[in-house]
Design a protein around this nucleic acid. Structure first.
Length: 266
DNA sequence: AATGGGACCTGCGCGC
DNA sequence: TGCGCGCAGGTCCCAT
């Protein structure tokens, strides 16, 4: 569930709270989430290291450490970082030199934790398309031109643009008045412009409100993200469109729940 | 090349 | 009450 705005929110929360702190001990309660290297080395590389820098690439968090290595975290769907934690239902607990715990939770065990020498060389990172905020309109138009794929599927492709998932894809298409099944190359120049603006606007607004707490996502403090209040279509099937009162429709697109207004989105 | 489906997992809410 | 089932969606992988 965490998409760009949620991960960015966590990143900013982490910067305020744990930047500069030292990891004194790592307790791995569920080894499945440790993807690289093995658990013993994972712990060894982290223990005693200071958190020197925190960054986000698409939906991935990177904690650069004083020993030159990096802790790379992909929360996937149900991953959470919580501080201060109590190590009760966490998959991994990071004990910090302030005497408190940074807990990593993940109900469904999809998340991926790695310690790497060079996070930039991770294949997933290498394959990422541009971040929407760094994307000029001319380039966006060029990128869409040869694509026949349904626009919503394309927006969610991390190699195309990075950071957008199912929820924000639905919201930006509603705001743009574009039907999720439109072939990407059928969008007019005007629509492409509207769409890129909607992407930037909505992601920015969502960051401003600390992201969207739908299922598991919470901020570092455990607080919920407030952007749910501003959702127009996501999760609202059968309810009246906030613009025209037509019931919001839900279809399956690429196996994903897709919400849209059949009247406002053409 | 693009699309669809399954796999990875678990907990929740639903209908019976 | 309790069971089985579908569903939730980020990403990879495979088949068509």
């Amino acid at each position: 569930m965490p998409e760009l705005p949620e991960v960015e929110t966590i990143k900013r929360d982490l910067e305020k709270i744990i930047l500069g702190k030292k990891i004194t001990e790592v307790c791995v309660h569920h080894p499945a989430v440790i993807r690289q290297p093995d658990v013993a080395k994972f712990k060894q590389y982290l223990q005693g290291a200071k958190i020197k820098n925190i960054l986000r690439k698409a939906k991935v968090l990177v904690l650069e450490l004083s020993n030159g290595k990096s802790l790379v975290i992909h929360l996937k769907m149900t991953g959470q970082l919580v501080y201060p934690g109590d190590a009760k239902k966490s998959r991994v607990s990071f004990y910090l030199d302030d005497g408190k715990i940074l807990d990593f939770n993940d109900q469904r065990l999809f998340a991926e934790l790695r310690v790497l020498d060079d996070w930039r060389s991770l294949k997933f990172i290498q394959n990422l398309g541009p971040e929407p905020f760094d994307l000029p309109l001319a380039q966006f138009k060029e990128m869409l031109a040869p694509k026949k794929t349904k626009i919503k599927a394309l927006l969610m492709e991390q190699g195309f643009v990075s950071g957008i998932g199912n929820l924000y894809a639905a919201e930006v298409l509603f705001k743009s008045g574009i039907h999720p099944e439109r072939p990407a190359n059928s969008l007019s120049d005007k629509e492409k412009e509207t769409l890129l603006k909607a992407i930037k606007d909505i992601l920015n607004q969502a960051i401003k409100h600390g992201g969207s707490s739908i299922d598991d996502y919470v901020r570092l403090s455990g607080e919920r993200g407030d952007y749910v209040r501003y959702h127009r279509v996501y999760g609202r099937q059968g309810q009246p469109c906030l613009a025209c009162k037509t019931p919001v429709k839900r279809i399956a697109l690429g196996g994903r729940g897709t919400y849209f207004c059949p009247r406002c989105q053409k």
